[in-house]
Write a protein that binds this DNA or RNA. Structure first.
Lengths: 261, 261
DNA sequence: CCGTTTGGTTCCATTATTTGAAACTTAGTC
DNA sequence: GACTAAGTTTCAAATAATGGAACCAAACGG
């Protein structure tokens, strides 16, 4: 992993370092990062200094550890409100959750990975960050495959290059070829399934959220367990899910001109 | 505004641009940014390209507008989980909300501004991003003053330099001098009040969250309205609030060694 | 239709920043 | 008091950023 191929320019490297800190999941010492990093000591050191000075990282002076800074949280709040589908989709997710009684996921694509931007659990209200902001693989989730199926050729190639094709279950599609074939079937069918490809016992039916011009904005899925229901039953919800997806897309498109200023 | 004095290096400029996009609150065209920016055309253009290529920004090809990218949401998830007090403080906030029956704010300092990282509304469960991630002024909020009162001299000066001292209400402290005097009183007292300084009718009592070494981690406030209660009554909760703050601090400190690895 | 403006993209010689090996400074060990 | 590990600083060479100007394309206007 890592394999940050082409981190263009200093900015790319800095963001790379930021990711590195994020990946650790806990405050890290300089030397920890150094061992995990391909950058030489002095370079890494200066990058950390810059990021810290910029408030993207915070240095705990007591322990000499770096953690992600709160400036990120502020930026993310804006990102959430302005770029993700979550605020637009909220009422529609509620509706879909109510009508299906199943778990709902709203996802977008982030550099070949699936990013869950909102979720409904049917049972209890959303605990935002605990649920959203999480990432998952694209090649073995319903939402991931739904988005890949309608991705542009370039985006697809980029994404494929970033998939690990780890065999999570014995249903997992293990090769780019198998995935390509599946994507073709998904395009023909209009929706994607997850046949326990990521997690044993978890199935879902996912649809893409497309603009009128055919661009993928995200994906929406209805998830359940093999204990509770079947794929066929989930497919029965596909029409409703597509309908909701279309309404989200329509609103997302009309939302792009708040005020002419 | 803007006035980003010393944006060190390319990274600083790039992050500056990121902030600029965030500030607009909606997808922006290249030329919009150009007019608001001090950078020359080509420079801004390349910064935008880099950020877009890095997934921090997303270019809507249909409209040629830039918006904050989802990569930020992912980073923020990590920031939230690892750097903010929110995950640690959650149960304590619940407890405080239950015992006081008032609105609770958990805040941290971000470049001289107050960043609300969690909140309890007594009535309904938190809608995370809708509530958290918001920012407010430090000089006229309870949590802001509580944090400034225990800030290091350098941090205080930096923060003071960034305050606008806008007169939100006729109670607002309008000058650095008045604020300094107030901070001294707060240190002596052990907790800060908001006497309708930010918003008419809104009062609160806030306490800092301090490490054993005396460093400010954040602040905690119990907020209400003049219609419902009085400052004196809120002060009655100060002991409980300090207790909760101490427990949050203790847990935050012990949390810093997940595994020796 | 053709001249013009507006919005966006690319060039490229100049300039400033980044780079990273190595030297240096602290603490901790033994 | 020599030895180590962790963090910080230096400095000439290498590299990347810069930005004025040219360019392209699409919309506009007469």
């Amino acid at each position: 992993m890592g394999a940050e191929g082409h981190a263009d320019g200093t900015v790319g490297k800095a963001l790379d370092v930021l990711d590195m800190v994020a990946r650790q999941g806990r405050p890290v010492r300089f030397s920890d990062l150094l061992t995990h990093s391909e950058y030489p000591k002095a370079t890494l050191y200066r990058l950390l200094q810059t990021l810290t000075h910029q408030g993207m990282l915070v240095l705990d002076p007591d322990q000499g550890t770096y953690a992600l800074g709160v400036r990120l949280v502020r930026l993310a709040h804006a990102a959430w409100a302005q770029s993700s589908l979550a605020p637009i989709a909220r009422p529609y997710l509620d509706e879909l959750a109510a009508k299906t009684g199943e778990t709902i996921h709203l996802a977008q694509m982030d550099l070949g990975q699936v990013l869950y931007v909102d979720k409904r659990n049917a049972a209890r209200p959303v605990e935002m960050f605990a649920q959203a902001g999480k990432v998952g693989p694209a090649y073995c989730t319903g939402v991931g495959k739904a988005m890949l199926a309608w991705a542009t050729p370039e985006a697809l190639e980029q994404a494929l290059a970033r998939q690990s094709f780890h065999r999570h279950t014995d249903q997992t599609l293990e090769t780019p070829e198998k995935l390509r074939a599946e994507l073709k079937a998904i395009r023909a069918r209009g929706h994607a399934f997850d046949r326990e490809e990521h997690e044993r016992g978890i199935i879902c039916c996912a649809v893409p959220i497309l603009t009128r011009s055919g661009r993928v904005l995200g994906a929406l899925s209805v998830t359940s367990t093999t204990a509770r229901t079947t794929l066929a039953a989930l497919e029965g919800q596909a029409g409703l899910t597509k309908d909701i997806a279309a309404r989200i897309a329509a609103e997302a498109e009309s939302w792009r001109f708040p005020e002419p200023s």
